[in-house]
Design a protein around this nucleic acid. Structure first.
Length: 766
DNA sequence: GTTCTAGAAC
DNA sequence: GTTCTAGAAC
């Protein structure tokens, strides 16, 4: 062990600790005794994280508490690894019932937020231990060490430590920690080590901030947090929030009360109980209410029933139908309809109607409160909130829209602008909320889904003039779009997976054109066609807006960069290129071309020659014979390649959202052994739900008249998983070395009819 | 210092 | 789609 680091090598054998940090003094024996703890160490190289972790591990083992240390410096088979590896190791340890020490620098909020989330997901207590030693101490220790696991040592160490400290952000309770311990010298560290070492399985530590010395008297526990919330979370747009003094006397129990749809529903009981605790115990329970959920939660306002004057009775029917339908189809998600007023008529209508339905009432309920302060003032943690936006996606206008833009700050405006310019009724757009936004920091909201509902107010744009047939359809589309976008976000939360079928089949994504939803509602193809055509039309008064909406609702009128035109050129004028080695076949219907940057040993494109078919989004039932021709040609070439190399396996399919213009089918061998496969996007575009198997596309077009595409950009940013054994890998080089060696069989859903090899023979239709 | 990723420009 | 490069991570 490096004698200069940590300063407390004797800690594991020490059982007596100073009073301020003694486990016995801070511990309260609670009902949930034995709860797991995630301790996130925060500190630069040289601050003694590893010594701390090792000492706690040793001591805790003696105290009978199973801990795992997740150390980024050693996680890659003894060498430095990645954050993803750490997250996985931590998740695995938590699954095994262990408490976890996260031993990595974690100096910035962003770097530790995923670990906080992980802890919240399994309902563990999440603590931070901030090893806030003077920079010169950390530097001198890291400079002098000679065998650091992460190779931060020697002359370079000073630079690394200085650079990291420049960006350090002290942990805050609002990040989701229930306890933060500051250590500013070796003595503090020793006390903290002793405290965690002595923490037996039947104890837990009190919530709050401990050991912070710099700013006057130490604020203990949650009071600091409450004080912070008082000054920072006043909602300018709402005059109905409880004041700080009301909260302290427990009045928030009535003002901000969750109203379960079915009396005595499990969730209601749980929250009521916790709110009772809040009354009795004051500050502590409050934190526990907020972190007490493993469900990814969407809070949404009633759409169109305020300014857009939509009939409440009809709206409530749509809400209940859409929401109950959604929670029945998706696991691990929760929907909460929120309104400011306890007398809200829409809430009572929804409650009444929902009470007559049978579904899991803990996963859809109503809540009275301010949608921008659900966590800090209502004790309800919502990962995602929906916003009843205006078509320009601009702040202002009063109501929920103004409140959300106000609360989220400029970060939301910028983030929104990056996602979309405008919105059509019935559509929604999910905007990731930057971690700089107060709404993210204080309320834990990671995404805002803007949605535009139908308008019945003649003073507002696109008034439907009481056409409630259309109105209800648009409102239903709006809710479905929000929910599908939410499902897509929920899938990216650790441990919050939805079922495979719905994820593959849904058209959810950053921008949801509601394609799959209209099908579900029984709107026929001609109607959908009309919808898309109208978006591209040049109807005089709305031309500018329609132009904007090409980016939004429809995918058919995407603009293509000059670099994206080459396949179109080849398809339109193949004769110009017929002498090129890369052209394998030319017919009236298609051109077969070797991919210029093949992502596998064999990778060809079968390009349609039909002008106007830019991508799968343009395909209609009339194109089914063309799809079959492309598929046959693909099969033919795959067979040819199999004759040359019998070890290959082929898959035929389309990219949901292609980068190159002109409909083209990929025929690609599943070795993915190619230097041109260089990044995550390449990998995920062929191995995630972004890749749509040709046989599925043909079925879909046959049955529904169009292809159910999944335009979710997140699919391309997903973690890197082996397409055979599904193991996760931290980066492309490591993934590639794994897939070169992986001999696992392909997943069964592919083996069924999606793969072509010598052993499987001819696959799909011909 | 190196390795790798992600965003901008084309 | 690619290349280039800044920045993240340690």
């Amino acid at each position: 062990m490096d004698p200069g680091e940590g300063g407390s090598p004797a800690a594991p054998s020490t059982s007596v600790a100073a009073p301020a940090f003694r486990a016995g003094a801070d511990a309260d024996t609670r009902e949930d005794a034995g709860k797991q703890v995630v301790v996130i160490l925060v500190g630069p190289p040289g601050s003694g994280k590893s010594t701390f972790a090792e000492a706690v591990m040793a001591g805790a083992a003696a105290a009978g508490r199973p801990w795992a240390r997740v150390c980024q410096d050693t996680i890659g088979k003894g060498k430095a690894g990645t954050k993803i590896q750490c997250l996985k190791a931590a998740a695995d340890a938590l699954k095994e019932g262990k408490s976890v020490l996260i031993d990595r620098c974690n100096l910035e909020r962003e770097q530790r937020s995923d670990f906080v989330k992980l802890g919240c997901t399994v309902q563990a207590d999440v603590h931070a231990v901030f090893l806030d030693l003077p920079a010169k101490v950390c530097i001198s220790r890291s400079v002098s060490r000679t065998s650091h696991e992460g190779n931060v040592q020697g002359g370079m160490a000073a630079m690394v430590v200085n650079r990291m400290l420049k960006n350090k952000q002290a942990p805050l309770l609002t990040e989701g920690f229930s306890r933060i311990t500051f250590c500013t010298d070796d003595d503090d560290i020793k006390k903290a080590v002793d405290m965690y070492s002595a923490l037996g399985p039947s104890h837990s530590l009190a919530s709050g901030v401990f050991g912070q010395k710099s700013k006057g008297p130490v604020q203990t526990g949650i009071m600091k947090f409450l004080k912070k919330a008082d000054t920072s979370s006043v909602n300018k747009s709402s005059g109905t929030m409880v004041t700080s003094s009301e909260r302290k006397t427990g009045q928030q129990n009535t003002t901000l009360k969750q109203e379960n749809l079915e009396a005595g529903g499990a969730c209601s009981m749980q929250v009521e109980k916790k709110l009772d605790n809040l009354k009795e115990k004051g500050e502590q329970s409050k934190e526990r209410v907020s972190s007490d959920t493993s469900l990814c939660t969407l809070a949404f306002p009633s759409i169109s029933t305020a300014d857009f004057q939509f009939d409440l009775e009809k709206a409530s029917e749509v809400i209940v139908d859409a929401a109950t339908d959604f929670v029945q189809k998706h696991d691990n998600v929760r929907l909460v309809l929120v309104d400011l007023s306890q007398k809200s008529r829409i809430l009572s209508l929804v409650k009444d109607k929902a009470a007559k339905k049978s579904f899991d009432s803990s996963r859809f309920f109503t809540f009275v409160g301010d949608i921008t302060q659900l966590h800090s003032k209502g004790g309800l943690q919502c990962n995602v909130i929906a916003n009843a936006a205006n078509w320009r996606l601009k702040p202002g206008g009063g109501g929920v829209n103004a409140a959300i833009f106000n609360a989220a700050g400029e970060a939301l405006q910028h983030a929104t602008k990056e996602c979309a310019d405008t919105l059509r009724p019935g559509n929604s757009v999910a905007v990731p909320l930057p971690s700089t936004s107060p709404l993210h920091q204080q309320e834990g909201v990671t995404h805002v889904i803007h949605v535009l509902g139908p308008n019945m107010n003649p003073m507002r744009p696109d008034c439907l003039k009481n056409d409630y047939t259309k109105g209800c359809n648009v409102l239903r589309e709006a809710y479905n779009s929000v929910f599908e976008n939410f499902a897509s976000i929920a899938r990216s939360y650790p441990g919050k997976q939805n079922d495979e079928t719905s994820s593959r089949k849904s058209a959810s994504g950053v921008i949801s054109p509601n394609d799959s939803k209209t099908k579900r509602e029984g709107i026929d193809d001609s109607e959908r066609t009309k919808k898309y055509n109208s978006m591209g039309s040049s109807d005089a008064p709305n031309q500018a807006r329609e132009e904007d909406n090409k980016k939004n609702g429809g995918v058919t009128n995407k603009t293509w960069g000059s670099w994206a035109q080459s396949l179109y050129e080849v398809a339109m004028h193949p004769e110009k290129y017929k002498n090129a080695d890369s052209i394998l076949e030319i017919s009236d219907e298609f051109v077969v071309l070797k991919d210029l940057y093949p992502k596998a040993k064999r990778h060809v494109l079968v390009i349609s020659r039909t002008d106007g078919l830019d991508s799968l989004a343009d395909v209609k039932k009339v194109h089914l014979p063309l799809l079959r021709s492309l598929h046959s040609a693909g099969l033919k070439w795959a067979h040819k390649f199999l004759e040359e190399d019998a070890s290959l396996t082929f898959r035929l399919g389309y990219h949901s959202v292609p980068s190159m213009r002109q409909l083209h089918l990929h025929v690609i061998s599943q070795d993915f052994n190619s230097p041109s496969l260089k990044n995550k996007k390449h990998w995920n575009s062929f191995t995630s739900a972004f890749f749509l198997d040709s046989v599925d596309v043909m079925d879909d077009v046959d049955q529904h008249g169009s292809a159910t595409i999944n335009p979710d950009e997140k699919l391309l940013a997903m973690e890197l998983r082996c397409h055979r054994c599904r193991s996760a890998h931290p980066n492309i080089p490591k993934l590639k070395s794994h897939i070169g060696a992986c001999k696992s069989p392909f997943p069964s859903h592919l083996l069924k009819d999606k793969l072509l090899s010598v052993s499987t023979g001819r696959t799909g239709c011909s």
